[in-house]
Nucleic acid binder design. Structure first.
Lengths: 184, 184
DNA sequence: TTATATACGGAGGAAGCCTCCGTTTATCAA
DNA sequence: TTGATAAACGGAGGCTTCCTCCGTATATAA
């Protein structure tokens, strides 16, 4: 069995630059043209070769994920903050609202990508909602006989071939679902 | 302005046959390999040329729609029957369960097609759920402050990157949502 | 049987995805 | 500075799928 020897060199500056450049270009392109914009177009716009794009991001999904990574990050942070500062049930409700707004920005992504969002961002979201929901359950606010993630799913469903303004309906659905789970 | 003169001839038998054959082949293929199975493969399996497939169904969506047309039809029929024979709230609940099963069969379709289901099947479903929901509302069972279709959306959301068995969760979500909407 | 509207089939152009590899360049040691 | 070399670059090209176009074949009607 061969051991990997790490000759360790400083990472090349041009590589870092291109990576950043590609992420910025992709973010714009996805927002403007939807998530199925040709990757070759992104590469061209960024002024790099297609090979470079694929070296940094092995496929479309990887690129999308990184583009939205920081927003996902913020969402996770918000969960922690809400738990610390709010009543459990309200923390849960508020986070779900945040989620709706977050999801609205990547909705077109989902449309074009299909439900492959299990990926990494999914894991962080699952952690957040699970913590929030269990917290509310322990506090006696809700009875949890579906998986916590199912709450998110119901809310996300609101965006199914949504017209602009679906967020309003999603907010209402949050209240309905929480009411339906309430342990009174 | 030229008027279209209709020379009217009996439609050719081979055309009808091929159409039917293609529908059957497509149904199997979609079920077995998902909705993104190459259309050329369907044509080949059916033993017709790709041109014939495209003449009958101008694109993938048209083909999918026709493949599932009769199931959609049944669902609409069920709505009428349930309204006639059940208590309004139970009619609504039961229809939503039927919908879950219906949707389970075309779920893979949705995944590959993305939310383009507004199309014709969507219209029939919207009619059904609207009638059922308004019926339950008039009976004083629920308070309807979301669009009826949103109930379906919430339920459909359960299937988002679902594992096998998501139908169970969907059933639970039906109960939760209806409880949350109950006007007590 | 013949004429013709209708349908058939598949070649081929267009578009995207992704890989592969020869060329270029940033880093580091001397 | 300079040379060696690991690291990164770029884009040609193979592959897959979509869909159109049109010459050929055939079912229908007279």
């Amino acid at each position: 069995m061969t051991i990997k020897k790490p000759p360790t060199r400083k990472p090349r500056a041009d590589a870092e630059q291109n990576r950043t450049l590609l992420l910025e270009t992709a973010k714009t392109a996805f927002a403007e043209k939807g998530a199925s914009v040709p990757l070759e177009e992104i590469a061209r716009t960024a002024g790099v070769g297609i090979g470079t794009l694929y070296r940094h991001f092995p496929n479309r999904e990887a690129l999308l994920q990184e583009v939205y990574a920081d927003e996902t990050q913020k969402l996770a942070a918000a969960a922690a903050r809400l738990i610390a500062n709010e009543e459990p049930l309200e923390a849960l409700r508020e986070w779900l609202r945040l989620f709706v707004r977050y999801f609205a920005t990547k909705q077109l992504v989902v449309e074009a990508l299909g439900p492959k969002l299990k990926s990494s961002s999914g894991a962080e979201i699952e952690t957040s909602i699970t913590t929030l929901a269990r917290n509310a359950e322990k506090n006696g606010d809700i009875k949890l006989d579906v998986a916590p993630l199912d709450i998110v799913r119901a809310v996300v469903g609101m965006s199914a071939f949504a017209k602009p303004g679906w967020e309003k309906n999603a907010y209402k659905m949050i209240d309905i679902v929480l009411a339906g789970m309430s342990a009174d």
